[in-house]
C-alpha cells in the first residue's frame, strides 16, 4: 500500500486527504490513532506522527488533548481550495500536452469536457 519511492508520511497525508475529499471522513470525525494507524499499516509510528502533524499544521486535523485527532470542519473546503490552485498545472496542463503529442485537436478535447460536464449535471 505504501511504497518506498517517496516519503511515507506524504503518502499517508495524501490518503487521509483523499478520504476527506471523498467524504469517507466527515467534519469532526475522529481519525485512527497514531499507534493504531501504524500497527494497521505496519509503519513506523514516528512516520505516522509526522504525517498527522503535517495535517494539523495544514489545518486539516485538530487535536483534542487525551482524546485524539479529528477532521477540521473546514477541511474539505481547505482541500478543495488547495487542489483547485494546482488543478490546472497538475492535471490540465499534462493532459493538453499529451493531447498535443497524440495530435488530438483542442476542439475535440473541449467537446469531450463539455459532454462530460453536462452529463454530470443531469440526474
Amino acid at each position: 500500500m505504501f511504497d518506498d519511492r517517496s516519503p511515507i508520511y506524504r503518502q499517508i497525508a495524501e490518503q487521509i486527504e483523499a478520504d476527506v475529499l471523498r467524504g469517507a471522513l466527515g467534519a469532526d470525525d475522529q481519525v485512527m490513532s497514531t499507534t493504531k494507524y501504524a500497527a494497521f499499516h505496519r509503519i513506523n509510528p514516528a512516520t505516522v506522527a509526522k504525517a498527522f502533524q503535517q495535517l494539523v499544521d495544514d489545518g486539516l486535523l485538530y487535536k483534542r488533548r487525551g482524546v485524539g485527532m479529528f477532521v477540521s470542519p473546514d477541511a474539505p473546503e481547505t482541500l478543495r481550495e488547495r487542489r483547485r490552485k494546482t488543478f490546472f498545472t497538475d492535471v490540465v496542463d499534462p493532459m493538453v500536452a499529451q493531447a498535443r503529442t497524440l495530435r488530438i485537436p483542442a476542439g475535440e478535447l473541449i467537446d469531450r469536457i463539455t459532454e462530460l460536464s453536462t452529463g454530470e449535471e443531469q440526474p
Binding site: 518506498d4 519511492r5 517517496s6 516519503p7 508520511y9 499499516h41 505496519r42 509503519i43 513506523n44 512516520t47
Partner: peptide
C-alpha cells in the same frame, strides 16, 4: 523498510550511510 525510523548502511566494514528513513526516501 516502512518499520524503520532510521537506516544505517554498512558496506565492507564501513558505515556508508546513516539517515532518517523518510529523508532517504526523498
Amino acid at each position: 523498510s516502512a518499520l524503520f525510523e532510521e537506516v544505517l548502511i554498512l558496506d565492507d566494514g564501513k558505515l556508508v550511510l546513516h539517515e532518517e528513513a523518510e529523508t532517504l526516501r526523498a
